[in-house]
Design a protein around this nucleic acid. Structure first.
Lengths: 229, 229
DNA sequence: GTTTAAATCAAACGACCGTTTGAATAGTAG
DNA sequence: CTACTATTCAAACGGTCGTTTGATTTAAAC
């Protein structure tokens, strides 16, 4: 190799494997992506995966560990900021929704993290080996947002808040996966009579839909826009 | 060979393979379920799959063909019935939502079809080999419901109707998969401090959430309950 | 009984998988 | 230079997968 002072030979291969695995996992699924495909596309040796990560599971864990916590930390910080703004009063539902959705949507549009967000959608639909990982690292933030929603929607019984929180996860899942988008459709169906939406989903569209759904059947759901006390 | 009274040796093994495959596909995923596991649980020979269905793909296709069309036919008939009731006037959003959700929720609670509905959720999240199948057989019914929604929500631009239709699919996906339910959780997290909802999701809860979301930002979204003209 | 087709069975095939091994190479410090 | 560690490499291992084969069993028809 050239040993050019700018590059670190160790982290070069390592990061390249992470990026390639992340992209292929997102495009074809984790189980459907073999180590031979990854190392081949990354122009690395098959054994490099086990040298740097110990196993395929180790590689998967690293792919997730890189970006999972920052995403949820972003969500949590936004929620905490809104809670501090409103003091003892509940945070409005639409602000809670935005704190949860915006970090995901923002990363879905950043080139360096959009593959991971699609991968998030995949494992959300089929956790598989990531079940414990997701469950363990996502439990706290889910609890925080559920508490905020319960405080903002005191008329709802707890089970209903939990159900609607899950509905929100379903909407987020759809936005991340975006099935039936032109990008994911076979060419014969995509460009013909099927004219499903192709532009990027606006944050306001998701938040507006979710906020209205969350407030359905409550007094807040019958009001509109700004209101005091 | 047929007309053997109580049991038909041909369809016996065949149907047993279909039922077993359907259940294992729903529980562990299609790719993660081997033919050896299926035939073992069905007390059949490994080669029986290829004798009755030609290949694993043939088995998968048959598992879907059995129940996919009846589900969507149910949805379509409900929508058509509502359209005939309202004549030229648009069908109310909540009735459209109920026509789409109720057939899925009903089957999710029938013992003979609940495994298939969970499988539907799986392939919805990761179409894989079923992409073309789903796309081809689901396209018409999606168009019909999108048209009904556009008619009921004339203030929304077409792309926004399409987006909200996709949001609805996400909520349906969550209801079908029901991640984070006690049934799908590891025991250590399920019964401890995590008290996520465990009862069956009521149809009214889904329809109410979706209808409010669909109407968000429109005049209809600011009104409540029964109203005339 | 004999014939004939449907159905089942044990056994094997080739392909791909994750993993391991041990030698070859690069880079750095003494 | 030598010595040593870090990294890469080709090759193979054992296992599981979907699939195929050819013989065997079943059961209705003649």
């Amino acid at each position: 190799m050239e040993a050019t002072g700018t590059t670190n030979p160790r982290t070069d291969t390592r990061d390249l494997l992470l990026d390639t695995a992340e992209r292929l996992f997102a495009e074809h699924g984790i189980d459907a992506t073999s180590l031979r495909t990854i190392t081949s596309e990354a122009a690395a040796n098959l054994a490099a995966v086990h040298y740097h990560f110990g196993s395929k599971d180790g590689l998967i864990q690293e792919v997730f560990a890189r970006r999972f916590d920052p995403l949820n930390e972003d969500r949590l910080q936004r929620l905490i900021a809104r809670e501090q703004e409103h003091g003892e009063r509940p945070v409005p539902v639409n602000e809670i929704e935005e704190a949860f959705i915006a970090p995901a949507l923002k990363r879905l549009r950043q080139p360096e993290s959009r593959h991971f967000m699609k991968l998030m959608g995949r494992v959300f639909g089929d956790p598989g080996k990531m079940h414990d990982f997701i469950q363990y690292r996502f439990h706290d933030i889910a609890r925080r947002f559920i508490e905020a929603l319960a405080k903002a929607l005191p008329e709802l019984e707890h089970n209903e808040v939990l159900r609607r929180f899950k509905f929100m996860l379903g909407v987020m899942f759809i936005v991340l996966m975006d099935p039936m988008s032109q990008e994911n459709l076979p060419d014969n169906l995509a460009s013909s009579h099927c004219d499903l939406v192709s532009d990027e989903t606006p944050l306001s569209s998701v938040v507006s839909f979710l906020s209205a759904g969350m407030k359905s059947g409550t007094d807040a759901g019958l009001q509109v826009g700004t209101h005091k006390s």
